[in-house]
Design a protein around this nucleic acid. Structure first.
Lengths: 193, 193
DNA sequence: GCTCCATTACCGTCCAACTGGTATGTAATC
DNA sequence: GATTACATACCAGTTGGACGGTAATGGAGC
């Protein structure tokens, strides 16, 4: 039973397929994201792909779930290092996004998620569910609710900005954004108004 | 020379095509956005479409430019009502985004822009250019630069959140966000830290 | 004013390339 | 021996777009 004839683990194959789909989506966009294009980068046939993901929507579902999972894991890991349990996910969300330099992987995740949702709008609910789960597992006292929302919005904005390059955010500005995480800073005056 | 035989104005035709492309993109997503689908909703033939936009990328380019233009006009109009010239575009950007209820047109613009950029990643630079132009034509004193950026990021985040439904933002919270526009509120303490 | 001509705005037909997907076979694995 | 993990061959439908034709328009020259 050598390497040639040994069957590969199905989960590894699935993971490879999803990875390649992400790569293609990020690089080529929605028009380029075809089953053939994905398979062309894989060491096995289209039949194999369609064996693991019987339809294109099924593949895209796999992609979104994987991306959401990766994103969630990243945030939760960040959150784990935060001693204060209240609103830690929101803070971690921002911290995970504000990283400078933004890694290529981060951009790929964003681009691929975007493409997947654009191709198959029904997938949006899955992405949304993952993000909302992150927010709902985040105990915040009611007073801090608006602050948490603000953090999330800023993080989303930064994410989008990094994806589209709409705003140039300097390393100093990124650091300044992190100062929002200092207790008592956020919206202090607006809250009283 | 009656209405039947009179030739239509080419710009009107182009506009119609772009409008329909936006509609299709917003409704059907990237996979549904085909030349045939667009033409099916128009009172003329595919030949006409391909006469005005010789390729699909060319059409998408038209779409993005139109959307960016609409967005820009909307922001500039908002900005025009702002007596304080410093950072008015940034404030207008947020004000235009925070509207509750979000109009259907706003959602269509967002969805369509997203789909177009997802289909043809090369278009991102065009959207970016429009948004950056808006930021660069916005005189801000250096001290207010970070605040302006923050406003833009929040607006982008809100925009994305509305598109993907990632966060539920109540009308009260939207109002609270607008209170950020009150002079002296933003980042008052963080700035000193 | 009228003629002539180049350009423009479309129509209708056709097509090659590709797309997602099926059907069948086969060799591992349990 | 049933199931799983692939390969190979094939296909029907669609897609972007080429192409040739036609009718309306606008301008130049007279």
């Amino acid at each position: 039973m050598d390497a040639q004839t040994r069957r590969r683990a199905p989960e590894a194959t699935r993971a490879e397929i999803i990875d390649m789909a992400i790569e293609v989506a990020a690089e080529q966009g929605a028009m380029g994201l075809t089953l053939d294009a994905v398979v062309a980068r894989l060491p096995f046939s289209k039949g194999a792909l369609l064996h693991h993901f019987p339809t294109k929507p099924a593949l895209l579902e796999g992609v979104i779930d994987h991306l959401a999972g990766e994103m969630t894991a990243q945030v939760l890991e960040e959150a784990g290092r935060d001693p204060n349990p209240y609103g830690r996910n929101a803070r971690a969300y921002l911290r995970a996004t504000v990283n400078d330099p933004v890694t290529e992987r981060d951009v790929s995740i964003g681009r691929a998620a975007l493409v997947a949702c654009a191709v198959e709008p029904g997938l949006i609910v899955r992405w949304r569910a993952a993000m909302r789960a992150l927010a709902e597992d985040d105990p915040v006292d009611p007073a801090g609710k608006d602050d948490a929302l603000m953090l999330r919005l800023i993080a989303d904005g930064l994410w989008m900005s990094d994806l589209f390059g709409t705003h140039e955010v300097s390393p100093e500005q990124r650091k300044a954004l992190l100062s929002l995480l200092t207790p008592g800073v956020l919206l202090a005056e607006a809250g009283e108004a």
